[in-house]
């Protein structure tokens, strides 16, 4: 039951500062969409506005429309907390809860929402999520150890397990591999391929090859000019973007001829 997201005329502000302007796009259900672009052009900002994490920052606000499955995300009747339960997120740096064990970390989303579950049910969720994140075999014998004791790559997969344990519709990933070694990176890329069958995935990456490898569609963001807000320059099927993009700037960026 993964969902598609329609974004129209999205402007995103930090206080008075307009960070991103005029974004229009459609993110297809059960596919992987990659955001690429130079640093500071607003990829993270757009991503965070997709599950209303943006407004966590004081003074931050959004104008425009984001429709998920026919509902407007920024409608006053929408509970942002409920939105985030449906649209999960994985961050650039792994951030397991330091006071919790591996087991508790995976269940954190359920526990913190004080969902009451039987022990067997909990065990099942933990195993399913950890298997889903390709981590089960590595940690099944030390589920009660602190999550901080894992390696960086394992921690990141733990965070993915934590995010999928609440069974969201959409999974947002902000440079999930940027703090990881190539082996952990490829483990996570494999994982993204598998997760695609169940979730709608949006991933921000600075790694062109990664975008080409994992995504079905790619959006290229860029600043209009220095000191101007960021914008979505082009969004197309990844194959097309990497072989024959519509926009010159896209081609320049992808082929590395970018200023």
């Amino acid at each position: 039951m993964a969902k598609s997201i329609d974004v129209s005329d999205l402007d995103i502000y930090y206080g008075d500062f307009l960070a991103v302007q005029g974004v229009n796009m459609t993110i297809k259900a059960r596919s992987v969409t990659a955001f690429i672009g130079p640093s500071g052009c607003g990829k993270s900002t757009v991503l965070r506005s997709l599950n209303r994490m943006h407004e966590v920052i004081p003074g931050a606000r959004v104008e425009g429309k984001i429709m998920v499955d026919g509902q407007s995300l920024y409608d006053p009747s929408i509970d942002p907390v409920a939105v985030r339960r449906q649209i999960g997120m994985v961050f650039q740096r792994p951030n397991p809860f330091p006071t919790m064990s591996i087991y508790d970390n995976v269940l954190a989303g359920n526990r913190l929402n004080s969902k009451r579950m039987k022990k067997a049910e909990q065990d099942a969720i933990v195993e399913k999520s950890l298997r889903g994140a390709n981590l089960w075999n590595e940690v099944k014998d030390r589920l009660n150890k602190p999550g901080m004791g894992l390696s960086g790559g394992q921690q990141q997969r733990l965070c993915i397990a934590r995010a999928i344990a609440v069974e969201p519709q959409v999974l947002l990933m902000d440079e999930p591999c940027s703090a990881l070694d190539p082996i952990s990176t490829s483990a996570i890329e494999d994982l993204i391929h598998e997760l695609k069958s169940e979730f709608t995935i949006v991933i921000v990456t600075h790694n062109m090859q990664q975008a080409a490898r994992v995504s079905d569609d790619t959006g290229f963001f860029n600043l209009k000019a220095a000191g101007q807000p960021g914008q979505l320059v082009e969004m197309n099927a990844t194959k097309k973007m990497f072989s024959n993009p519509d926009n010159e700037a896209t081609e320049a960026y992808i082929s590395g001829r970018f200023g």
Binding site: G109, S114, A163
Partner: peptide, 20 residues
């Protein structure tokens, strides 16, 4: 990071404070 991780799981703010 930790607060955001908790919000991103759909945890309300007050529970984020008390539990994380």
């Amino acid at each position: 990071d930790l607060r955001e991780a908790s919000y991103a799981l759909g945890v309300p703010k007050w529970r984020t404070i008390t539990k994380v």
